[in-house]
Amino acid sequence: MKPNDVILRTVTKFAVVIIFTFSIFLFLNGHHNPGGGFIGGLSTAAAIVLLTLCYDLETVRRTIPIDFKKLAAFGVLLAVGTGTLGPLFDLPFLTQAFGHIDLPVFGNTEWTTALLFDTGVAFAVIGTAVNIILTISEDESEWKR
């Protein structure tokens, strides 16, 4: 029997956009305020999980053709990679650099290497969280059988 989930599907279409936007906000907010790569990544993962709940695994796999295991590995590589910048300049591992730069639209903006590190963390969190949920829910069809 096909479940009747019109409300879930309709709400999801809007909610996913909002969650994605909010997670990007959280991610960028993290440098001076509560937020950051971990929370941003986790809410992105939540959006993807909501999609799989609403549609099915196959549809989501087709729409987002990313291997989440590889995404997680790439994220860790990126995060550790920014850490190795420190030793290149004879500073301790994981030392951060930051400064200010004038961008055309945004005006005076702060740049940090911590942002790169956070991107890595976000990728790792998205990859791991989604991968775990997908692994648990993969055998769904066998349950029904």
């Binding site: 590889k70 997680a72 590995a73 790439f74 550790v80 004879d90 591992f93």
Partner: peptide
């Protein structure tokens, strides 16, 4: 004594492992 080499025994296997997850 600060010594950046101390991180290598931790990072080398980790990076190699993460790299291998890709293939």
């Amino acid at each position: 004594m600060m010594n950046n080499m101390l991180i290598l025994p931790v990072v080398l296997p980790l990076v190699a492992g993460m790299f291998l997850v890709l293939f």
